[in-house]
Structure formats: structure tokens, C-alpha cells
Design a protein around this nucleic acid. Sequence first.
DNA 1: AAAAATAGGATTAACGTTAACCTGTTTTCA
DNA 2: TGAAAACAGGTTAACGTTAATCCTATTTTT
Lengths: 332, 332
Amino acid sequence: MSILLKDIAQATGFSINTVSRALRGDAKISSSTTKLICETAQHMGYMPNSIASSMRSNHSKMVGIISADSANPFFSEVVRGIEEMASKADYHILLASTEESVKKECELIKMFLCRKVDGIIAMPVFDSSPAHLDLYRSLKIPFIFPGRRLEGLGNHSILHNDRDGQRKVIEHLISNGHRKILYIAGPKKVSNTTDRLAGLAEAYANNALEVDPDYIVEASGHIEDGYYLTNQALNRGMGFTAVACFNDMLSMGVLKSLYENNLKVPQDIEVFGYDNLYMSQFMQPSLSTVDVPKYRLGYVAMETLIQHIQDPNLEYSTKDFPTRLVFRETTR
Amino acid sequence: MSILLKDIAQATGFSINTVSRALRGDAKISSSTTKLICETAQHMGYMPNSIASSMRSNHSKMVGIISADSANPFFSEVVRGIEEMASKADYHILLASTEESVKKECELIKMFLCRKVDGIIAMPVFDSSPAHLDLYRSLKIPFIFPGRRLEGLGNHSILHNDRDGQRKVIEHLISNGHRKILYIAGPKKVSNTTDRLAGLAEAYANNALEVDPDYIVEASGHIEDGYYLTNQALNRGMGFTAVACFNDMLSMGVLKSLYENNLKVPQDIEVFGYDNLYMSQFMQPSLSTVDVPKYRLGYVAMETLIQHIQDPNLEYSTKDFPTRLVFRETTR
DNA sequence: AAAAATAGGATTAACGTTAACCTGTTTTCA
DNA sequence: TGAAAACAGGTTAACGTTAATCCTATTTTT
């Protein structure tokens, strides 16, 4: 059916092994032989069978990516960074999304293991069940968590100072005179939610203010949550003067709700997002937010993963990127 | 290192082959034996090596997905449909994006072939170069094009009446009295651009109107194009009273530009998108658009692909889903 | 009661590649 | 000048599964 090493061996008169080595650029094969073999392979339209190669060589040149939420462009950006680096290093990607389900996450890991990926990059659900953690701990292949962390596996993470970023946002709002700030938090099962809430608490504490739990509402992180939760808070007459969101998608829903309720942004209410999605600058009004280096996160995660694949003894160490506030039209 | 069929064979006293067949539910193995083997496998924590399985059985249970543009949530939705169906049928996905580059598309196909995928689902670039088409024609595995088409391979497509949808949009605008409609087209290298432009032409023809090429501008399909092209048209004093876009992302940029130029939507200018992204209902103002069954497109594409994998003699036939206009706040 | 069919499983040989080891020349340089 | 390297490539045996074939009791058929 298709061209095999055997066929090239026959055509050139060399052994299968020599052909295999020549095609892989083995230095033991003379350059003239290598050239002849490569050209013959080219002409015959040889395509290596990576399944067979993986089988024998014990590495698949594939890494498994576990994304979290396909509805949020945040993750597309991270994955784009991963892909870019992967492609440079001639790795390929097996991609799937958990939609924030631990069960699915565990299944994916097992699937990746069966498929013999060389490493895993995951945006894991924050779930402290032993089964989940043990699964990661039992992994014999390298794994990296870009943008998220997992209890006890902190050094596998590449983070971006969530706590710091959220603290700055809240401090800014407080210094602008706001005392009733509605905070739309992310889902509990995401580490960033916890970290950003810690940043919020810190900001209040730094200003000797109490956190009012009524002004912290939980969301799954999608646009509609921002919309409905803002409507709800408004209906309850909570009288907030600023809204800080766990992410930009939520903010988009918030802006919609505020507009429909005839509240002017930023005059009546200031709004802050988090993530700095590309689209946020085109929201109406354009969104003030916290920039997270999404692409870089993915890129570095892949880069780091490859280092660990190449040197299994390499120690893991947390990286932490700085965040940066981006002021646009939703703040004064 | 890890548990193999061999180990289960040793533990149960059956042959490797019997273990393999029992685990796959072969009817030739008695139910008591099957039960014993499966339970033992479970206890020992057996994980099948899909690489080895693929190698021998000649099917990988993987399909390659070629997406087009990672920045557009349209494709995430399609991929979600693909994944859902794939997961039901126990297929897994190798996903990559061309970012609309034919070169990358061809490379991806070859990569998928090397990795022995059982089929391919692609959103191909519309490029009539022989190399590109021949590559698809030479494929010995099934392939489906959801939402796009390729010259001469029309029956591999699952479409959604692009021409019809765009015609309705333009006819609606014309019937609303608009005579100067700015149309922001997609990139030439996407079949939908051509088809939607045909729909536009049809609408004009049906109303005995001439198409003014000056009012048709080309874009790559991203938010910023909508923004800059609208600014540009405004600066040129083109005096249009409606804007129809190739997709919703463009519309988001258009809305931003119009707002910044103090033009009220829909009072001064009506705007129509295309795709009906989830987020479009939250744009400010919410976007009138054409609904495309994105998820369904992906789902059916995968479903169809599996049918073709299971029956290689099955004839290909184009499917065509109906579109539906969605009226929101950007139209009167 | 002998032949045929069936159930249940064992043996053997692949799948296409690469790793490990081996062999025969040619260089090198002490 | 001769022994050790270096060079260039060949041989053989895997990797873990599954397909194809074969075997042997037991049951069914006639």
C-alpha cells in the first residue's frame, strides 16, 4: 500500500536500518548516503509511520493538552502559545477540554496515558479529592499547569500573580472612593477564584475595611452569569458603585445588564474585568481589566514541558509572571 | 514498568490472546472467563497501549481536525460538536488550526496521515491550487468539510446555505429602504466569502439594483478589521446607512467604530452580522445576525465521518442546513 | 456409535520502526 | 609500523498488540 523503509532500502540497496538512520540524520551514516536515501525517500513519497516509530522508540512526540472551558477565548490564547512552541519543537498536540469537570479531567489523563503522550499540559480543576491529586502524582511523564495550580503540586505551575492582580484592582476601586463593590467571583473549583478572592481580601484589609460577603457572588464564568447576577444584585437594590469580575467574559454580561438598567459606565458604575481578552478593547465601553500573558503562558508551559521531557531529572519550579492593570473606558 | 496483557495472562493462566479478546468482548470467550479477565485487569490497573493496538489493528480511533481560525469562537463551537459525537463513539481528536494558511493545512494533513488517523474533518482554505485539491483527492481515509466547501469535492461538505442566508440579509436591508449598504466581506480564501457574496449579488439582482463594488470591502474576518474598515469608510464619506458583515466578530468592531463616530445603531445605521455567536446577544447593542447551526455542523460532520469510516464504500453526499435570521437591536 | 459441528482457547506470526550489537575497512598517531 | 580508533554500515531482536490459523475436548446430529 504505502511506501515503507523496506521499499527505500530495496531501491537504494542499503539496509532498512541504514535507511531509518539516514532519514533521522544519524551522524554514523555518510553524507553522500544520507543524501541519496533522503532524495529517494522524497521521490518515492515516503511518509514515516509515527505509530510504528512511537511503538519502538517509546516516545510519541505528542503531548496531551487539557483545556478547561471551550467557551472562553482565554484558553484558545493559551493553547495558541502551546501550539506555537510545540510546532517549533516538532511536537504535536492532543487537545481536549474538561468544561471544568474533574471526572472528565481524570478520564482525559488516562486516555492520554493510553496514547503514550510524552507529557501533559493541563488547566486542572481545583479539586482536592485524593483520587485527582494522586492521579497526577502517579504520573511518570512530565506535566505542567499553566495559569492554574493544584494543592501540593505548586511547582508544576506557571502562574501570573492572581492575588496581586486582583488586589490592585480592588485597591484602585477603593482609592477611587468605592465602598460597595460587587465582586463576581469565578467557580470554586478553579484555583484562580481562590487566589483572586485572597487578593480582594488583602485589598480590603490593607484599607482597614471589612469584606461584606453579600457583595461577593459566585459564577461559572460565562457571559450570561455576569448578566444575570448583575440584574439580580440590582433588583435587590444593593446599591453598589463598582463591579469587579473574575474574568472579562463576565464583564461583558455585566456591561449589558448595566446598560439595560440605564446605568452609565463609568459615571454611575465602574467595571473591572480580568484576563484582558483581545475582544475586551472592543466591548462597549471598552473594558478596563488585568492583563494576563495568555499566549506566553502557553508558550512557556510547552517550553518547560519539553525541558522536562528531555531531562527527566530536572526539578520543577513555579514560575510567576507579573500582571498589569489596563485602564480603558469602564473606569474613570 | 506498566501492566501488559502478558501480566494479566500470567495472573489468570490464560493466553495473551485470550486476554486480549476477552477485554475486547469477543464472543468466542466464555462469559465466566471474560469476567475473570476483566476483573483481574481492573485490579491490576491495566491500561491498554493504544499505540501497539493501532499498530497491529490498523486503526487508531483518532480523527484529525483541521480548524481554521483559533480567534473565532465559531470554530470552537463546531469543534465542540465534533468532540461530543467523537466521545460518544469512543474516538479521539487530534486538533490543529491552519489560521487560514494552505501551506499549514497541507502540512497538517500529512502529519495526520503519518499519525494514521482514521479520518479527517477539515475547515479547508478555499484554494484551487492543484496540489491542495490533489492532496485531498489522494486521501485513502474518509474526510468531511463542515461549513466550507472545496471545488470538485462538494459532496464532502456539510453546509448551511450561505448564499441563501446572505441574500435574505441584504434583501431585508433593501426592503428597509437602504441603498448604500457597506458589505464587509470575508477573506477570498474561504468558500463562505464567495457564497455569501453570491447571495448578496442575488439580492441586488432580485431588486433590480446594481452592486457597487466600492461598497464591498474585504477583511480577514477579525474584530479589528470591522473596526478599521468602518472607520475608513466613514472617513471617505461613503454615506452608507447599513453595514452587513461576513461574520459576527467583524460586527463587533463595526459597532465600536460607529459608536465612536457618534452614529446611533440602529437609528442612523443598521448592522447585520453572520454566525450568531453566543456572545452576539450580549454585544452592545445586541447583534442581529444569521444563525448557523455550529454545534450541529460539527456533530453531524463527526457522525458522517464515522459512517464513512465504518463503510468505506458509502457514497458522499452534501448536506445543507437551513439558516435563520435573528433580529435583535442592531436592526429596526 | 461414528461423524460433524461447536465451544473455548492456544500458537504463531505479523504490524513498521528503532535500539543494540556486530563487522569489515580506513585513519590516526605513538 | 602496528594497535587502537574512527568510520560506515549490516544483523538481529525487540516494542505490545491483534489477526489468522490451529487445536482439543465436548456436544450435537444422523
